[in-house]
Design a protein around this nucleic acid. Structure first.
Length: 544
DNA sequence: TCCTGCATGGGGATCAAGTT
DNA sequence: AACTTGATCCCCATGCAGGA
């Protein structure tokens, strides 16, 4: 370059210093990254901004530093030279955050320990952003105030807070989130400070404080410089917490090579000689209780769904299920008496289902929103379903009539069977229990009828006798005009009675009448129901 | 004016040969 | 044996020149 060209360049530069060009998008982005991460090395910035050439980033950073928007230094380093460590000046931060220009002086150059720690946290961020396997990515990376979690302790309800260096959430493909608190120790933390940290996290876990913000307790990742320190922290944590706690503490010695934080299998999960695992392995281990719980719930739901499906499609299964439930609640009443009673009768049955029962139970299954917990859907039955229920009612009616006919054949037809038949024919089905007792009642009536027949036989013999006695007691002329048979009706009307409820004829029972001091020649009790509400016979009514 | 590849150089560690 | 010195390596920044 000629001396005159060089002079021109210097002139240009001095002009641009007087009137700085507006900040480009890239400048803004750099400032915003710096104000978010506090400290970034030139390399970290390049890793976060892979779309911009490194050379360009260096150029921009140098320019921003000249304008006083960021500070930079190259701290001491054991090997080679350290890259620039960049931090936002107060002026630069005001621009990044859109706040008012700062008053007062600029901040001091950060002390080397802080610088190393802050750059280390940024290094963790870069490692998580760039080295996680495909399908797994960093979803949250929160620092300082954002990561702080206040809570009150378990026993004494004192206000405490954990303040991890970083809180991270990693989206683990379909497996859900992985959560962790990170504590970074660059080898500078005193033994006492380590113990304090462990105690704080133990309190947090014991108080179950994580339930406020997280589905499960995030892992505690302790990154330090040596395996010895890592094991010491694990031991301190175990002492504070006990082994059965939900907070999984993992420690590694990766603080000097943070780039390997996500890839190296250096994470220890316990103080005993267990193998070290990689970061995802450790985080998944922390999530395991939650995974198992979710798995259990899913299995349960699947089984319930299968059972619901079975109940909907298998009427016999639905029948036995409803039978076990029925004693507690029978809300099918909501479908009306005309549906509830036939269903109740169907549920009582044990044998194979009839076609009508089969179809009605299928319809009932379809109406249930949840047959397992006996919840009906909030809808009216369809026409088809109503048809199935009506068919079931017809089926039950026919079955009950058949049963009555059968009992009448076996035991003879008494008042109970008559009444039952009348009720069924009037479209009122017998309840399941009434139908159940009907056979017993028919058998009882058979005995009553035998008693009635015995009394009737005795009565007819006595009546012949009595008719002849009355005949003889008439005068000769009267005897010429009649015969003993003419007195039978009169005797019947005097002695026989009709039971008002059974509509059966009651015959006199001399033995019982003697015992009860009643007239021996007049019926006073029904043999079937034992009732005394008897009516006299009208003119047409007579004994057989 | 901005961006970028290339050459160069700086700060520091390491190592081997030379010196005391 | 202890110290010094020069070569070399590592890691990174910076200056220059040319292109967009």
């Amino acid at each position: 370059m000629t001396p005159s060209a060089s002079a021109a360049r210097r002139r240009n530069r001095s002009r641009s210093r007087r009137q700085a060009p507006p900040l480009s998008d890239l400048d803004q982005r750099i400032l915003s990254l710096l104000s978010h991460h506090r400290v970034l090395t030139q390399n970290q910035l390049a890793a976060i901004e892979p779309q911009t050439p490194e050379r360009t980033l260096r150029y921009r950073c140098a320019r921003l530093a000249r304008r006083g928007l960021l500070g930079r230094t190259r701290p001491y380093r054991e090997r080679g030279s350290a890259p620039h460590h960049l931090w936002p000046t107060r002026k630069g931060e005001a621009i990044a955050c859109g706040g008012p220009p700062p008053r007062g002086g600029e901040r001091q150059e950060p002390n080397p320990l802080f610088l190393a720690h802050a750059a280390g946290l940024s290094e963790i961020y870069v490692a998580l952003e760039t080295t996680l396997p495909a399908g797994v990515e960093l979803a949250r990376f929160e620092r300082e105030a954002e990561a702080r979690e206040p809570f009150s302790t378990w026993m004494k309800h004192e206000q405490r807070a954990i303040a991890p260096d970083v809180f991270i959430e990693i989206a683990d493909g379909d497996g859900g989130p992985l959560l962790a608190f990170i504590e970074l120790d660059m080898g500078t933390m005193s033994h006492r400070r380590l113990k304090q940290k462990a105690a704080g996290y133990a309190e947090y876990a014991k108080a179950d404080a994580w339930r406020e913000r997280h589905d499960f307790c995030p892992a505690l990742l302790f990154v330090t410089t040596t395996e010895k320190r890592a094991r010491a922290f694990l031991a301190a944590m175990e002492k504070e917490l006990g082994r059965d706690a939900l907070l999984l503490t993992c420690a590694s010695d990766l603080a000097r090579r943070l780039g390997g934080i996500a890839t190296e299998e250096r994470w220890l999960l316990g103080t005993e000689g267990e193998d070290a695992v990689d970061l995802l392995g450790a985080l998944r281990e922390a999530r395991r209780p939650w995974d198992e719980e979710r798995e259990r719930i899913a299995t349960e739901r699947q089984e319930d769904d299968a059972e619901r499906e079975r109940l909907r499609s298998d009427p016999a299964a639905l029948r036995s299920h409803l039978r076990s439930w029925r004693r507690r609640e029978w809300s099918v009443d909501g479908l009306g008496e005309g549906v509830a009673r036939p269903l109740e009768i169907t549920l009582e049955g044990d044998g194979p289902l009839a076609e009508a029962e089969h179809r009605a139970l299928l319809a009932l299954g379809a109406i249930f929103a949840d047959p397992l917990h006996f919840r009906l859907a909030e809808r009216e039955p369809t026409v088809r379903e109503c048809r199935a229920f009506a068919d079931l009612a017809d089926h039950c009616r026919a079955a009950q009539l058949r049963k009555v006919a059968d009992l009448a054949l076996r035991f003879g037809e008494g008042p109970e069977l008559r009444e039952a038949r009348r009720q069924i024919e009037a479209s009122e089905l017998l309840s399941a229990s009434d139908a159940h007792w009907l056979e017993q009642k028919a058998a009882d009536e058979e005995r009553s009828r035998a008693e009635q027949a015995r009394l009737a036989d005795a009565y007819f013999a006595w009546r012949e006798e009595e008719a002849r006695r009355l005949f003889k007691a008439k005068g000769f002329a009267a005897r010429l005009r009649s015969d003993p048979g003419d007195f039978l009706d009169e005797i019947d009307r005097r002695s026989l009675r009709l039971c008002r409820s059974c509509e059966e004829i009651a015959y006199p029972d001399p033995k019982r009448a003697r015992y009860e001091r009643a007239r021996q020649d007049i019926a006073f009790r029904c043999h079937f129901c034992g009732g005394g509400a008897l009516a006299e016979l009208d003119d047409e009514g007579g004994a057989h």
